[in-house]
Amino acid sequence: MNSSTAARIGIAGIVAGAGLAAGGIAVASAEDTAGSTASSSAHPGGHRGGPGVLAETLAEELDLEQSDVEDALAAVREDLRPDAPAEGEKPTPPSDEERADRQAALAKALAKELEVSEAKVTAALAAAEKQAESDREERQAESRTALVERLDAAVEDGTLTKADKTSVLKAYDAELLGGGPGPGGPGGRGAGGPKADAAS
């Protein structure tokens, strides 16, 4: 086995290992909202983090019981669920305008269910979106740190070179490895994400 083949095998193993680390983070997040429906269907406005997380944040912002907010979200979910794509067609991500329309519709419906002003619900939804974005960036940073640590170990034991490490991190940040930073939905940052000093 030549050195280039060994390097490729080493890189694949390291990336897979980092993927498992990132997957563990995702599983932990999913466990927080176990028993709930998928966030894409429960939150027509496009909120991440699961209905339990959204309900908790909204309840805090609106000074309401979380159970009341959960009931309200369940009540409006079906009416605001996006139409399913036609048979044979792939679903397409909503445009910024569509997201904004869904967000406004969600705020209006929740305000009616909770008997709270629409302005307060809109502000609470914005706070929930900001929190979801913060959580997403934290998970991205943790995933990248895990990858950097595995690459450092591979460089130290001679499996990879520093140039290999730099190339892998460059590919990760460019979203070419399937686990790199990506769009964060409404208000998301898109490609890029946290960078670690060890990239150089």
Rank of each mutant, 00 (worst) to 15 (best):
A74N: 15
S143F: 01
S3E: 14
E138C: 00
A154W: 03
G180E: 07
R139H: 07
E98N: 00
L114E: 01
A59S: 03
S40G: 14
D135P: 10
A21I: 07
A154E: 02
G190D: 00
V15A: 02
A6Y: 04
G13D: 07
A127T: 01
D79I: 15
A22V: 00
R77L: 10
G193L: 02
E98F: 02
P82M: 12
G52E: 03
K130S: 10
P82Q: 08
E138I: 05
A109N: 01
G178V: 02
A153L: 10
E70Y: 08
M1A: 10
P93W: 11
A146L: 07
S67E: 14
S200G: 15
L176Y: 06
D83A: 15
G179Y: 05
T166L: 06
A59R: 11
D83E: 15
G88A: 02
D173K: 07
R189T: 14
T145V: 09
A16L: 12
V15H: 06
K90M: 12
S36Y: 05
L151G: 03
V148Y: 01
A128E: 02
H43K: 03
R8T: 11
P94D: 09
A38V: 15
S39L: 02
T92D: 03
N2L: 05
A111I: 02
L114Q: 07
L147P: 03
G193R: 07
A119H: 14
E60M: 14
G52K: 08
E89G: 08
A6G: 00
A128Q: 04
G50N: 08
A171V: 00
A171E: 04
A74T: 15
K112W: 05
D79F: 15
E137R: 12
E61I: 06
E113V: 05
R189H: 13
A105Q: 15
E137N: 13
E56G: 09
I11G: 04
A199W: 10
Y172A: 00
K112D: 09
M1F: 13
A132V: 07
G24C: 10
E142R: 00
Q103K: 15
A30E: 11
A199E: 12
E89H: 15
G193H: 00
D135N: 09
E115V: 08
S36Q: 06
